[in-house]
């Protein structure tokens, strides 16, 4: 295999998939950093976001790209509502209880999507998506958009967390919630803000997944395992780790078809998760909180 087919058939698809996992893993990491529990509804929240894009673009005639911000807000509000309905009263109990209940929320979200849209495979209307040939590299326009927008989102999030007042409040609460409240930071507001961001990131990852593959009710559930693998591999609580973890898992998954049948390529996420937990459970970047 020559270098250009390696890049075209493995590296580029791996980076696309990896960017999508990275967005998901950042969300998982944010949930853990602020609320300290695992979030199994993450994939189905992404599905919800992907279908919201479909809904808003179909009902308004907007392009899916233009519908994404609206869908992101909708998914964020959904996440806040879920938190308020299902997680707030569990806040003082052991975190494993919230983690498990998020699994129930995942099933509910998926059922809601299936009630409205059924179980068929749909896709976004973005016109033709013929690969451009750039010096022998075959890249589709929406792949460029995906990578550029993922980079943009990550940079924006990083700037928000480092430099804005409420971003710093999130880091403060992640570091020491009691001390944060002693500074006058209302923990409930930080939690709502976190769910807004997490919902928006989920919608983005769901949209990009739908853009590069298809839109269907199981799409988010299917990326849950590699997303968690990416978050844990990178070190939970580390945004840069989530990105690196996402890319590694995505590229490994695409390359795994060299050795296993493509139906089984999701296995690679599972293997990476196992290896990370066995060899370096704190992740590549030592896990911490924000």
């Amino acid at each position: 295999m020559d270098i250009s087919s390696f890049i075209n058939f493995f590296l580029i698809p791996g980076i696309i998939l990896g960017s999508i996992y990275a967005l998901g893993a950042i969300g998982v990491t944010l949930v853990y950093a602020i609320m300290r529990h695992g979030h199994f509804a993450h994939g189905d929240l992404a599905t919800f976001g992907a279908f919201m894009v479909l809904l808003f673009s179909a009902s308004s005639g907007l392009s899916p790209y233009a519908a994404l911000p609206i869908a992101a807000v909708a998914a964020g509000l959904m996440a806040i509502a879920i938190d308020w309905l299902f997680y707030t009263h569990l806040r003082t109990l052991p975190k494993i209880i919230t983690t498990i209940s998020s699994l129930g929320v995942a099933l509910m979200l998926r059922a809601v999507v299936q009630i409205f849209w059924g179980v068929n495979t749909l896709s976004y209307e973005t016109g033709i998506a013929r690969p451009e040939n750039w010096f022998g590299l075959r890249i589709k326009p929406h792949e460029v958009v995906t990578v550029v927008m993922v980079i943009g989102l990550v940079v924006a999030l990083e700037i928000f967390l480092r430099h804005s007042k409420w971003g710093k409040a999130m880091r403060a609460m992640s570091d020491n919630p009691d001390l944060a409240s002693l500074c006058g930071i209302d923990n409930r507001k930080v939690i709502a803000l976190t769910w807004m961001l997490v919902g928006a990131l989920c919608a983005a990852s769901g949209f990009f997944l739908g853009l590069n593959t298809q839109v269907k009710s199981l799409m988010g559930w299917n990326i849950l395992l590699p997303t968690f693998a990416a978050a844990i591999l990178g070190g939970v609580g580390r945004i840069e780790g989530a990105i690196l973890g996402g890319l590694i898992v995505g590229i490994c998954e695409e390359m795994s078809v060299l050795v296993i049948r493509s139906e089984y390529k999701v296995l690679s996420g599972f293997v990476i998760l196992l290896l990370a937990l066995l060899i370096r459970p704190t992740g590549l970047f030592r896990g911490k909180v924000l």
Binding site: K168, D175, L179, I185
Partner: peptide, 29 residues
């Protein structure tokens, strides 16, 4: 804290993963 009283706990009384300056900024939240 809005009533004019501030408190430095015995343990875990700084934000470890934030800079000195950011700690002060959080005090002024």
């Amino acid at each position: 804290v809005r009533s004019g009283i501030c408190y430095v706990p015995q343990v875990a009384n700084v934000f470890y993963d934030m800079t000195v300056h950011e700690n002060f900024e959080m005090g002024a939240f």
